[in-house]
Computed example of a mutant assay.
Amino acid sequence: MAMRWTAFLDRIKERGAYETTEEAKQAARTVLALLGAHLVGGVRAELAARLPDELALILLNPLQAHEPLSPERFVRAAAAWIEGATEQTAAWDVGAVLSVASDAAGEELTRRLLLQLPAGYDLLFGHPQRIQ
């Protein structure tokens, strides 16, 4: 079942220590658009089904990635898209959004997501070791 919009944003706002919901919303949209470009098939659709509708649409209609980004390049890309972000603040943004998305996905789906991504994304999702 999909997480409600306000509950999802509230969790991101709390984890990211954002002052406004708008900041949490911008981070969520940017990070999920980038993530959607890296996921394919059923895994992307399953994650979308567990996200609020507005974010599910962003995840399902991403820009296409020309190549999978390493976790470091993913954070750099997020920094380029988030107004006023540095690589350090973008890493915080990515971690806040992806850890909440992981909570919404559940452990089994998160494990399958991580199998589609380059090594190192487990840390961005708040799972310090690769789930086998």
Rank of each mutant, 00 (worst) to 15 (best):
A77R: 13
M3V: 15
R29H: 14
E22S: 13
D10E: 14
E87D: 15
E72D: 15
A105R: 11
G84M: 02
L57I: 02
Q116D: 08
V40I: 06
L98W: 04
R50A: 09
K13A: 12
S70W: 05
W5G: 01
R44C: 05
W92R: 15
R29K: 14
A24D: 07
A48Q: 11
L32F: 11
A78M: 03
E54A: 14
G84K: 04
G95P: 00
T30V: 15
P128H: 12
F8M: 02
Q64S: 13
I58E: 15
R76G: 10
L113E: 04
A80H: 12
V97S: 02
A91E: 15
R112S: 14
L34D: 05
Y121T: 00
I82W: 09
A7K: 11
R15G: 03
L55D: 03
D93S: 10
H127Y: 14
E46G: 10
L59V: 05
R130N: 04
M3Q: 12
A2N: 08
A33L: 10
Y18A: 04
Q88V: 08
E83A: 12
I131C: 03
L35S: 02
A27M: 08
A7F: 08
G126R: 02
Q64R: 15
A49T: 03
T86P: 09
L115S: 08
L109H: 06
G126K: 06
V75E: 06
L9G: 11
G84E: 00
T86R: 10
E67D: 06
V31P: 07
L57A: 14
T6M: 07
L114T: 01
V97M: 01
F74P: 05
A79V: 12
Q129L: 14
L115A: 15
L123D: 09
A28Q: 09
E108S: 14
E67R: 15
L39M: 03
D103K: 12
D103Y: 10
Q26Y: 04
G95M: 02
R44D: 06
P128D: 01
A37D: 03
A17K: 11
L114F: 13
A33I: 01
H38N: 06
L114K: 05
D10I: 00
R73P: 01
E67L: 12
A48G: 09
M3H: 03
D53C: 00
R73Q: 11
M1A: 13
L115E: 15
E72G: 06
L69H: 04
T110D: 02
A56N: 09
W81S: 10
F8L: 01
E87G: 10
Q116F: 09
G16H: 13
G16M: 03
R111S: 09
R73L: 13
L39H: 08
G120V: 02
F74C: 08
L115P: 00
A33R: 12
A77M: 12
T30N: 07
G41I: 00
V100R: 10
L117R: 11
A85P: 03
V31G: 07
A104G: 11
R130W: 14
A49V: 06
E83K: 14
M1P: 13
L69F: 09
